[in-house]
């Protein structure tokens, strides 16, 4: 055990957990130790959004987050979205609109779309583009993704 590692406790998708964490470990690699593979490291530079997770309710790039710094915090990953047994409105909208091909970037887009709709329940196309500008889809499903976010906004609107 490296001398710079330490024991941390945090809340992971609503459950208290603890882990022994090396100083240089990032949050994406920590999540892998809990068998959570939805946040993926792709660019490793905070540019692509594939590793989007929430820390204390704020969207961050897991690849730029030191794992030791989530000590005492609450971490939420894409795996939390269907814990009820049903897909979230955003997830269902992505499927219905065909908003992906390979799916590698999808968890990041879904997490960011949830954050956008939390802050702005009725975003226009420009607002969607601005908010998701830091998420890259190499299959270029952008038109379908924008439609899916609009569709999710409609589904989430109180009747």
């Amino acid at each position: 055990m490296d001398s710079t590692s330490r024991q941390i406790r945090f809340t992971l998708n609503g459950r208290p957990v603890s882990a022994r964490v090396e100083s240089h470990l990032d949050l994406v690699d920590l999540l892998r130790r809990f068998d959570l593979f939805g946040a993926r490291e792709s660019c490793g530079q905070g540019l692509c959004g594939c590793c989007t997770v929430l820390v204390d309710g704020v969207a961050v790039s897991g690849c730029l987050t030191l794992a030791q710094l989530v000590d005492g915090k609450s971490v939420t990953t894409v795996e939390s979205l269907d814990e009820s047994g049903e897909l979230s409105h955003v997830q269902q909208a992505f499927i219905d609109e065909g908003a992906f091909q390979c799916g590698f970037c999808t968890p990041g887009f879904v997490m960011m779309a949830h954050e956008l709709l939390k802050q702005n329940p009725d975003p226009n196309e420009t607002e969607i583009r601005d908010y998701l500008a830091g998420n890259l889809c190499r299959c270029a499903a952008y038109p379908e993704i924008i439609r899916a976010v609009r569709s999710a906004a409609d589904r989430m609107r109180p009747a």
Binding site: G46, L47, G49, T52, V58, A59, V60, S61, L64, T65, M112, E115, D130, Y131, A133, G134, N135
Partner: peptide, 12 residues
Amino acid sequence: MKRLANVRVRNV
């Protein structure tokens, strides 16, 4: 800010 990095980077 709109074109400075992205939402996640600006968040931290």
